[in-house]
Nucleic acid binder design. Structure first.
Lengths: 329, 329
DNA sequence: CTGTTAGCGCGTTCAA
DNA sequence: TTGAACGCGCTAACAG
């Protein structure tokens, strides 16, 4: 196995000094065209690839960023990470992974570790959408999915009001007028925002919910429960907005087991487009996708900008869109 | 914001040379005890943290490894990554993420990129268990989940024969004697190995399958189909081994919709312990866990050993275990 | 246009 | 036991 060629090797092969070689390869101005070409050929010939450590030692930038996840392998982390990795990779920055497991102390240690490795910035990918305690770092930080509680911190999050709105609008467009809503846990800002968005859409159409929405746990059982209650209450309804796909799954199963046809009798729309549910269930669920990989990508871009000295303050909300399935006509 | 203290700063503060300071902080022999203490205090006082780039520039090692995933966010990648990140993090190695998306060309580029960043080794985390084309890298490589087709390459994988065996044994222990099996896709080594293991266990108990197992797609529908066929065929059976949790899910739904009680009439055991299914379904599934995070951890350890000059050749199979649920009595 | 010089922060000889 | 000197590979002044 050959030792890697260094810039000095390239320079020697091209018959120039290392300084000239460096300039030539970086497209710097003060080099003759012929010389530049010669250096370039020598470089490719020797399969020269610059030593990143040496470069960053002198430039002071490492072209690497730290990715702190609250929960590697969580439900939402992955798509965000994919988007971020993509974006950063295309800027040929390395992504250094750090899993904090939702443990604040561990997060602090991981942060110190990353900083000691001279990362240029930190991307905080949360798996829980609620605003979180800010990270105290000496380098730029951008939050994805969950914002920091300090609204001045840079963050890219889901536009939940819009998500709630388009869920309702989709049902209205299907001609439904008696719409119920299964809400998630009340201490999630996401639940409240989605509800607000849905309510707005209904009000603009001159409607109200078939029954005042109730908050409950993010579990299939809660969806089942609300569906059953709706049926026994006798309140007429022809559509249900469920604030997560799991809730929708439970809701649908309860409806079907009572002989209600979906979507003919009752249309159901979910939230999150959590891929696996689609694959598991017999019927593809119509749902609102949160555009998570876009969130990851934009957060990454913001971070790169901040590192380049152009910080973007504040929270940016990314809009999702309805993914058509078979549960809304 | 203060500039980070360098070794020279520490040395100056302690009134010694950088050489001595370096030795002192590294517990090298040729330093007086008193001097060492003085240097240490100076270091903590200045919050000195070594510059990783500079270190690696001179040592030639970066204390970072590349993690190439075939599918970031795939079904199996995450737990493996968690185990690996944990293990590597405790050796204070950084993990550099690279998502190849199952694209060979992209994988090659990512590999080159990682090598240009002087990673000390590569961990290949596959999401598909079939043996894969080896990576041609100038540094140590260890494969996790899927082995390389070259059996001499270092890999840590699931012991699928054992998994199949303990699934069957669990049903036998529950007193079941008429056991059917829903197999996955035939071109998956995992399907064939699990089947072989299950068959062995039955044969040792002097039994055969209630019906000769059939291979099919890894989808709920296939589980449903086999269950329905079994019921209509009239073959008596009191238990089913499903080679994935999704198959089990389908199987159970078909059984229940025909009025068969699970586990009273028919016990069902799955494979993979794919967390989400447990949470989604009304009944917690009894299943075989593959111990994926252990696979990740061991692969990481192997990689570290290889980097330290103690390569472990060949394939290591990690055993899983049955996770009790409510579908086997 | 090109080459020389001087570090970046650190580990490691080798003298003292 | 200590420290001066060198070099890892590269970029950025400056001088030619």
């Amino acid at each position: 196995m050959q030792k890697r060629a260094t810039l000095a090797d390239v320079a020697a092969a091209a018959g120039v000094s290392v300084a000239t070689a460096s300039k030539a390869l970086h497209n710097r101005p003060r080099v003759g065209a012929a010389t530049r070409e010669r250096v370039r050929r020598a470089a490719t010939q020797l399969a020269y690839v610059p030593n990143a450590q040496a470069q960053s030692l002198v430039t002071g930038r490492s072209s690497s960023i730290g990715l702190i996840t609250s929960d590697l392998g969580g439900m939402f982390s992955s798509p965000i990470m994919i988007g971020a990795e993509d974006e950063l990779g295309s800027s040929s920055s390395t992504v250094i992974l750090a899993n904090a497991r939702g443990d604040a102390a561990l997060e602090k240690r991981k942060l110190d570790f990353l900083v000691s490795r001279n990362v240029d910035g930190i991307l905080v990918v949360n798996d829980n959408p609620n605003p979180r305690i800010p990270l105290d770092a000496p380098i730029p930080v951008v939050y994805a999915y969950a914002a920091s509680v300090d609204p001045a911190d840079s963050a890219v999050v889901v536009d939940n009001v819009h998500a709630g709105r388009i869920a309702a609008e989709r049902l209205l467009r299907a001609g439904r007028r008696h719409i119920a809503l299964v809400a998630g846990e009340p201490d999630f800002e996401a639940s409240r925002d989605r509800l607000a968005g849905s309510r707005e859409a209904l009000e603009e159409a001159g409607l109200t919910f078939a029954e005042e929405p109730r908050f409950g746990p993010w579990q299939a059982e809660w969806g089942r429960r609300v569906a059953r209650d709706l049926l026994s209450s006798g309140v007429p309804f022809d559509a249900v907005i469920c604030q997560s796909d799991i809730l929708a799954q439970g809701c649908i199963s309860a409806l079907i087991s009572r002989g209600v046809r979906v979507p003919e009798d009752v249309a159901v729309i979910g939230h999150d487009n959590w891929g696996i549910i689609t694959r598991l269930s017999a019927q593809r669920l119509t749902t609102v996708d949160n555009n998570l990989s876009e969130i990851g990508a934009r957060a990454a871009r913001r971070l790169m900008d901040a590192i380049d000295g152009h910080p973007d303050e504040g929270i940016e909300a990314v809009r999702g869109e309805v993914v058509e399935g078979e549960t809304v006509p």
